[in-house]
Design a protein around this nucleic acid. Sequence first.
DNA 1: GGGCACATGTAAGCTGTTACATGATTAA
DNA 2: TTAATCATGTAACAGCTTACATGTGCCC
Lengths: 201, 201
Amino acid sequence: MARNDQTQTAVLGALSVMPMTGYALRNEIRDTLGHFWSESFGQIYPALAELERQGLVERRGAERTGSSTFAITPGGTARLLDLLTEPARPSPPRNGLLLRLFFGRQLGPEACRTLVRRAREQAQQQLAQLAAVRQELRDDQEHATDSPYWLLTVSAGEHSARAAIAWADHALATLASLADPQARDGDAPPPSTPRPTEEQP
Amino acid sequence: MARNDQTQTAVLGALSVMPMTGYALRNEIRDTLGHFWSESFGQIYPALAELERQGLVERRGAERTGSSTFAITPGGTARLLDLLTEPARPSPPRNGLLLRLFFGRQLGPEACRTLVRRAREQAQQQLAQLAAVRQELRDDQEHATDSPYWLLTVSAGEHSARAAIAWADHALATLASLADPQARDGDAPPPSTPRPTEEQP
DNA sequence: GGGCACATGTAAGCTGTTACATGATTAA
DNA sequence: TTAATCATGTAACAGCTTACATGTGCCC
């Protein structure tokens, strides 16, 4: 019953937007859900086979030749609704950067600053990518009913990335004062009204 | 060479702060690293055994009776530095809430609002927890050299939680206008200067 | 004809979780 | 003496990644 829920949700969800081949499904999941979800290649085909066995998706098109598209069935739509309703299993957190910073005394302030700087750059790149996605969605007439929901996920990514940048700036300053302890900074809680982050070209 | 890196890093790191038993290690990892890291019970003891075999930690105290504490060796400290220096392997994103919202058309705006509200509450609880941790660290004289780094991870959690709350407010408003489309909201990108989030008792 | 993107799968193997088994110590 | 907590481990299994195997269709 509760097996492979997660993958099934992603696969059924994607097929609920439009029918497509397994290959296209993989690309769609990588490119479109990529900001907050991932399924590896080796899981998609077994999931499709299982869903087909259960009558939740059906295979259309030539079975002889390679290509065949998968479409969701009414039963599949019902199952998808079930899956979306049941609570998400919490995925255990694993943040390699914070793990390294936590033991930062071993590395020293300068090495830590390098790590944080790199993370800041990544967040900034993410922000640029999300801006591009947002633009695409704005021009997309075809999925008008879906796009408001999609934009919410884009917005979540943007909030998260902006928070990461603001934190990185705070961390860089703190680490600098650790490396060169003239101005006693201590550690005041960050301001509850973060200043807007400066953009880069 | 590159096997179990992640667990070894967490275990060696924790032991670099102070020697302790495997059992205490588990509690420490759950309670202290819990905001950004997790190791399951079944991994810690095998990791300790392997580290002992490699001479990176040593077992002290009665081997007859149950309890024995593990301490990091000089070799272990060197290995820890190596591990901290090599880049963190990126963990694939898996955000169940965003997956559900992405296919939100199936659920409808009201059900989505419930999901978002729940996420907002969780973020608020996290904020409260982190405030408590911050206070504890402030009163902790014993780990004065470590605590600046530890506070950075607390700060990261706070930034992230505040961003989650701000996003949730945006999402709730957007979803409300979807459910009751009188005021055309469209979707403007969120303000680059988020308003401070209101606190709750 | 050579290379590339499309397309579908399988198998091996690693990572990580859960549940179980066992015993010592301590507090009610 | 009974229950809870401390303490150490193991074994089974679920989940996921990676690499491999295979073939088609199209464009240069």
